[in-house]
Amino acid sequence: MDLILLAISAIFVNNILLAQYLGNCPFMGVSKKLSTSLGMGVAVIFVATLASIFTWLVYYYILVPLELKYIQTLIFILIIASLVQFVEIFLKRFSKGLYNALGIYLPLITTNCAVMGIALLNIKHEFGFWEMVVFSISSAAGFTLAILLFASIRERLFISHVPQFMRGSAIALVTAGIMSLSFMGFCGMVN
């Protein structure tokens, strides 16, 4: 029951993109079309979950016993960067279809703060193993949900009349703000 609540709160109430501001660069960058957003979203779910599991294990079984907590940032980014490389090589070898679908998004993920952010939040909230897994998957799913909704809105924005100076990123940010406002409506769902 707690895990379900945790998942709902991570997807809707504390949406990683709209309430915690993580992963905004790809949010603005690749959300112009629905299909690319879907690719990015799936890639983020996949990498964020794997990265969270690895960083969590390394943190609690290597860094804590060795009292090296202070270099957590350095270790985490190295884990994420090499993980992304491995996933890329692995997909290229064994699953051409998936590679063609996700391949171009993978290099972008290394510098996606959503992935690193989820890994850091797992440690900050002192989650246990299963809480960590549920939180990572649902946070990344929240990211995907937001980016998909946003891409559909942006496809409409393309054909609507926007004042010249607000075109592009400016109107995108304001739209994201209104979306974030509507997501605040979920606040009452948990607690």
């Binding site: 501001y21 304001v174 703000g177």
Partner: peptide, 17 residues
């Protein structure tokens, strides 16, 4: 709050444009 951040940044960007 969160929505304010997005809208404020978007408006500044628009003004600069």
């Amino acid at each position: 709050k969160a929505p304010g951040a997005f809208i404020c940044l978007g408006l500044i960007l628009g003004l600069m444009n």
